[in-house]
């Protein structure tokens, strides 16, 4: 091909009027070893197009796509969890505020506030003596009452049965 031919083809090419055969001829020329320095500048264009055509899917293509899809799915899960976490956090904060600042009048709580420790006898011996005395009193009252129960009225059957 003469340089003039090439020039004509190139002109047509850039006008967009080349036929498929003419484009193939051009490509063929730029694929070759002997390119006129005047057209050297156009070489990468045609080589690039050809190189692009040869690119194929790499063997790991499927894997890559699948892993992308997978990560997208995780993202979607995150997209669901995040707002829920926000809701939960707000609820937790509200509950926390209620726990920190309970309603001021709280008679029910005051009941539980008895400090029983201060009524404990000072030594274990005393405590045991007190407990023993209490159990003795309990026993004697039980006996006294079971006697009266049986002797006077025979009151509740349950207690009579238990304490005979």
């Amino acid at each position: 091909m003469t340089n003039q031919n090439i020039q004509q083809l190139l002109d047509k090419y850039f006008e967009g009027e080349t036929s498929l055969e003419e484009e193939a001829a051009l490509k063929n020329y730029f694929q070759g070893q002997h390119i006129d320095p005047a057209f050297q500048a156009f070489q990468p264009l045609f080589r690039y197009l050809d190189a692009e055509r040869q690119t194929a899917l790499s063997p790991s293509f499927d894997e890559k796509v699948l892993s992308r899809i997978q990560s997208e799915r995780q993202m979607r899960v995150r997209r669901i969890i995040l707002p829920l976490a926000r809701v939960a956090a707000v609820i937790a904060i509200i509950l926390g505020v209620f726990a920190l600042f309970p309603k001021n009048p709280q008679p029910a709580q005051a009941v539980a506030a008895i400090d029983w420790e201060q009524y404990e006898p000072e030594t274990d011996e005393e405590a045991i003596a007190e407990a023993t005395a209490a159990l003795k009193l309990l026993a004697s009252k039980l006996n006294g009452s079971s006697k009266t129960a049986t002797s006077e009225l025979g009151k509740i059957e349950k207690s009579a049965a238990v304490f005979k």
Binding site: W116, Y119, E120, A127, I128
Partner: peptide, 19 residues
């Protein structure tokens, strides 16, 4: 008011009761 704690009850086994 008298309060006997669980701890005191545990001591029962270790002490002699005059009964």
């Amino acid at each position: 008011v008298v309060y006997i704690s669980p701890k005191a009850f545990q001591m029962f086994d270790k002490l002699d009761i005059d009964l």
